[in-house]
């Protein structure tokens, strides 16, 4: 029973993912500065050189020399660089401006850039797994050290977690049964989704290998046919005679 439900869950997860990819997906503007930054696939962090470039970029936007960006600058930055809507940008700003100062510093800015790059490179699971604590703190809007499903769903455009996935997530990982996830439960979820991600990657690699094998076989067949073709033309001519 358990196995079948897991299989069903994974199928739903894949379907939700496929659906999510087809639906309006946040994208970075091609050719923008962020588009050129490279996010390490293993650690989901930028290199020191990239961070230095990002600091310079941040200082260019920090017009008022306070080492922060206010909501107007932040909105125009994200609106220029991504396809996020005004509502989504406001949600992101409120998420990062946890202390309600009306400004975000470089730390939050860096975190946001890493999230955007992870989303762009389809590394959401990896990112959440590697940075589970900061992500948990970002999602925990009320500071109760627990995350509700609504909060989770609000940020699906950043972390690509769909409603269906969420239901499954709370069904499988809400061990305390309070319909909220504490950090340990959340960590379990990140490990689970990471396993799934790795399995999916393995499957994709195997598919690619199979494709390569097929290509090699096709090539061999074609070359064989080419070698055979003079003979067949000879037989054709002979038959016509």
């Amino acid at each position: 029973m358990r196995i079948s439900s897991e299989a069903e869950f994974s199928l739903r997860l894949q379907a939700a993912r496929a659906f999510g990819l087809k639906s309006a997906r946040m994208k970075l503007k091609e050719g923008s500065f962020l588009w050129y930054l490279y996010l390490d696939k293993l650690y989901c962090l930028l290199s020191v050189r990239n961070v230095k470039a990002l600091v310079d970029y941040f200082h260019l936007l920090d017009v008022h020399r306070k080492n922060t960006l206010n909501d107007v600058l932040f909105y125009h930055f994200l609106h220029h660089v991504t396809t996020l809507t005004r509502r989504q940008i406001n949600i992101v700003f409120n998420m990062l401006d946890w202390s309600a100062m009306g400004e975000i510093g470089f730390d939050q800015f860096y975190m946001l850039v890493c999230i955007l790059l992870a989303r762009e490179n389809q590394l959401e699971e990896q990112f959440i797994f590697r940075h589970s604590r900061p992500v948990f703190e970002l999602l925990d809007l009320d500071g109760e050290l627990k995350i509700g499903a609504d909060n989770f769903h609000m940020y699906n455009f950043l972390f690509n977690i769909k409603r269906q996935e969420l239901r499954e997530l709370y069904h499988d990982f809400d061990i305390t049964g309070d319909r909220l996830l504490n950090y340990k439960e959340f960590k379990l979820f990140t490990m689970f989704s990471m396993d799934k991600y790795q399995e999916r990657q393995k499957a994709e690699k195997e598919k690619e290998k199979d494709k390569d094998k097929d290509k090699v076989l096709l090539k061999k067949k074609r070359s064989h046919q080419v070698n055979m073709s003079p003979n067949t033309s000879f037989w054709n001519k002979w038959i016509r005679k």
């Binding site: 310079d56 017009v63 125009h76 660089v81």
Partner: peptide
């Protein structure tokens, strides 16, 4: 070129702001 790109982009953003 990266500095140029950054500054051009920042200029566009700041003009809107």
């Amino acid at each position: 070129p990266l500095i140029e790109l950054m500054e051009n982009e920042a200029l566009e953003i700041l003009t809107k702001a």
